[in-house]
Design a protein around this nucleic acid. Structure first.
Lengths: 143, 143
DNA sequence: TCCCATTCGTTGCCATGGCAACAAATTCGC
DNA sequence: GCGAATTTGTTGCCATGGCAACGAATGGGA
């Protein structure tokens, strides 16, 4: 790719990512879901695979350890998750959902798809495929 | 667009946007530029059009007023910008660059393009055009 | 003119997130 | 088996950013 004026992509990328998160957050609030978008992400992953170490969670979510620590702190305060001693490694925890946490995921799951879909009005499946390809390339280029 | 599994775009979008900003920030640090990526954006806009109100700056950057207030606070502390009383509206300021601020922009400008370009290795001009189109559609869909 | 709605910038609160430093626990190399 | 290096999670600091509330200033309408 020749050196031209491609600088605007970072601006658009940042702006759009913020808007997408903000949009979802506003819907969450309107639905009185009482969790943030990032907390939802953690809940969803724990629902699908319980007992993960914070470590593994961080890797899955591409968040750093401190961020995961704090999100789990909040989920524990809300009594949606608990930390259990890892049976063979006293440094780490296995994070589990409480009954309340599982209920929350089941309550939210069907609503999320609709919220997420709004962004794609007027766009095609090919747009989607291509878009994901580019996002992936960018990420890999910067690794 | 049919209701399928498009939820992953928000994850990829967020992840990539964060990576892009982080990558640039690391380069800034290595070059000892002593500004953040967002501070750079403000500097650049002020360089191109001095005397803007914080208001106008916020609109250009798609940031909210509190965020702009804080970034300008930091730029003023670093003596790269100053707030001037607006001549006809005592509520607002005209933000200007100091000599130091202008020098910083001139020093940084040529280096930024290279940093930004790294993300596009292996991607074509069409990829770029299409990518921007999709980002724009998503943004507009959520407005 | 006077009141009211609006605008502008600021402040506070909270959540995320990057980064560095740390302690405790574990693993590796010898 | 011992000491060094690494891993795991936590804490602190700072910057961004969403949101609500606020004061000061402005502008519009009765």
């Amino acid at each position: 790719m020749k050196e031209e004026r491609y600088s605007s992509y970072s601006f658009l990328l940042d702006r759009t990512a913020r808007r997408v998160k903000q949009y979802a957050q506003q819907k969450f609030k309107a639905l009185k879901l009482n969790v943030t978008v990032d907390q939802w992400l953690v809940l969803k992953h724990l629902y699908e695979r319980e007992g993960m170490k914070q470590n593994e969670l961080a890797e899955l979510l591409f968040k750093d350890n401190p961020t995961v620590t704090r999100i789990i702190d909040l989920l524990c305060e809300k009594e949606m998750a608990i930390r259990r001693q890892h049976p063979s490694d006293r440094r780490s925890f296995q994070v589990e959902l409480t009954r309340k946490g599982r209920k929350k995921v089941e309550q939210m799951k069907p609503k999320i798809e609709k919220i997420r879909l709004k962004a794609w009005e007027g766009l095609s499946k090919d747009d989607f495929t291509h878009f994901k390809k580019v996002l992936d390339s960018i990420y890999k280029n910067l690794e």
